[in-house]
Design a protein around this nucleic acid. Structure first.
Lengths: 104, 104
DNA sequence: ATGTCACATAAGTATGTGCTTATGTGTTGG
DNA sequence: CCAACACATAAGCACATACTTATGTGACAT
């Protein structure tokens, strides 16, 4: 809810990879850590940044915390991009394809 | 053309502001500098980063260099976002509005 | 030709960012 | 209870990044 810079949040490749993994399934921090070669505190810090940006949300389950993607957090990025899509005739068709897909 | 990280390029607010000003009109580095409270080399460095990311292009005119937005450079960002738009039913309508606008 | 202009590049510096180790907090199982 | 566990927070460090001043390069005007 604060004025975090979503571009800076997404500028980190690890955080983008975390988001991508979370699209597949809800996960705990420990589960996320596997395959990342990163310490537990580092992951915890990344998750905090993503949460403060509204990109993920957490659901406590005992001593576990399950994280999931919060796609609405990407709205600012979407709105920013929309301003430039006006100058972007080449890609309208592929955009339409996306919408057609979603309509089904 | 190299593998620059477009998120890191756009993570800088000054560079995003430069892009925004360039959507209004083609401009020289000096023209861009007005209103930015930034040194000439700083602006030059930002423009170099934007150019290397394919987000702007330049057209030499004597000792002036006119810069313009290269919206195609935003394609990687668009493609990245598209992956998450699937999880994003709320905003389809506004997206359709954008397309309807562009069709006219 | 030469000084000025528009811009690029070099080099140094300050601050930001992401990592680490160490420790804190709350939860669970034996 | 208390030891192990899952995660958060603190503090310090290494490196990246954005800035500065200084200087270089090429074009124009006189």
């Amino acid at each position: 809810m604060s004025d975090v810079d979503i571009f800076k949040v997404l500028a980190d490749p690890t955080r983008r990879a975390v988001l991508e993994r979370l699209t597949a399934a809800e996960m705990t921090a420990t589960e996320l850590r596997s395959g990342f070669d990163i310490s537990q505190p580092a992951m915890s810090q990344h998750l905090a940044v993503l949460r403060e940006a509204g990109l993920i949300s957490e659901r406590r389950d005992g001593r576990f915390v399950n994280y999931r993607v919060e796609p609405k957090g990407l709205a600012p990025l979407h709105e920013w991009l929309a301003r430039y899509r006006v100058f972007w005739p080449d890609r309208i068709d592929s955009l339409k394809d996306v919408l057609r897909e979603m309509d089904q």
